[in-house]
């Protein structure tokens, strides 16, 4: 297509998935952990929704699943997995995809999410999130794999999450923000924006987190993760075992004012946190969400 004033137009294919816009606003939620089960039941009225790590239930006993569903007792649930490995340059682990699809349907999850990373190659299951090489070839790989996931769960919105990484590949062809944007555009996925990960990466790899956020398509943010870490040293590790830092609260305010955020989720993984403190953090997140 030609335009006399502007020269040749570039036509890019954008798969805009209207389900992102139809996605419900769930409010402020908490990550379900077995160690917190009793506290979650006691404070259920102060929690808007629960995020369940599917990996903890893919091979669980029926009792464990039933106990979790009883704790949720009508609260909306979202499913979060750790090992789809959408960056692996081979086909996805069919068993893992199928188990996740079953789980998402069984808990009637409002949406389903995993990370922009690879966790396994055919010979080695690394069991952790490895950063991707930000190139066009990897974009194609990730898009193909995400489309496989979406075909397994055609009626459930899929979100991709930015990860924490402690090293980056050399010779990237694009920035991480450009990489994420390309994936979102080509797949129609929503963004699960982990602000703790953004902050940790900005500290460890020394970049401006606000500039990073400005480069993201914040209109695609469906869910936000917040969490806390221990005292910074040379490196900050993504431990989810401390209260949310002031820096992350400020990033949350920044994003909420610029994006139609539908939900904020607090991740807390230590086994015996102060649950009163957790409830205060949820209340604080709720106040920030109301600024929108």
């Amino acid at each position: 297509m030609q335009s006399p004033e502007w020269g040749r137009w570039d036509i890019i294919e954008i798969h805009f998935d209207a389900t992102v816009m139809r996605t419900p606003h769930l409010g402020v939620g908490l990550g379900y952990r077995v160690a917190h089960h009793d506290d979650i039941v006691r404070h259920r009225d102060e929690i808007d929704f629960l995020e369940v790590i599917s990996d903890q239930f893919l091979y669980a006993t029926d009792e464990k699943l039933e106990a979790m569903l009883a704790a949720a007792s009508g609260l909306p649930l979202v499913s979060h997995s750790l090992a789809l490995s959408v960056g692996t340059a081979t086909s996805l682990d069919e068993n893992y995809v199928a188990r996740n699809a079953d789980f998402v349907q069984r808990i009637n999850a409002s949406w389903f999410s995993d990370h922009l990373s690879f966790t396994k190659v055919p010979e080695i299951d690394l069991g952790t999130l490895i950063p991707l090489w930000f190139t066009e070839e990897v974009v194609e790989t990730v898009v193909k794999n995400i489309m496989t996931v979406k075909s397994a769960l055609p009626d459930t919105l899929f979100l991709v999450e930015n990860i924490t990484y402690y090293f980056s590949m050399a010779k990237n062809e694009m920035s991480e923000a450009e990489f994420i944007t390309r994936i979102l555009e080509l797949t129609g996925c929503g963004l699960l924006l982990d602000l703790e990960n953004v902050y940790i990466n900005s500290y460890n790899l020394k970049f401006d987190p606000y500039a990073f956020l400005d480069d993201l398509p914040l209109e695609r943010v469906v869910q936000i993760h917040i969490a806390g870490h221990g005292a910074p040293a040379d490196m900050i590790l993504d431990t989810h075992d401390h209260p949310v830092s002031q820096e992350v609260w400020e990033l949350l305010e920044y994003v909420v004012k610029r994006s139609p955020v539908r939900s904020i989720l607090l991740e807390r993984d230590d086994e015996s946190p102060s649950f009163g403190g957790i409830m205060e953090e949820l209340a604080h997140a709720r106040r920030i969400l109301a600024m929108r």
Binding site: A89, P122, E123, I124, L126, W133
Partner: peptide, 16 residues
């Protein structure tokens, strides 16, 4: 198209 080889190499670096 040797992206999987790159991932294999990185996995071995990190785990061995």
């Amino acid at each position: 198209m040797s992206l999987i080889e790159l991932e294999l190499a990185l996995a071995q670096v990190l785990t061995d």
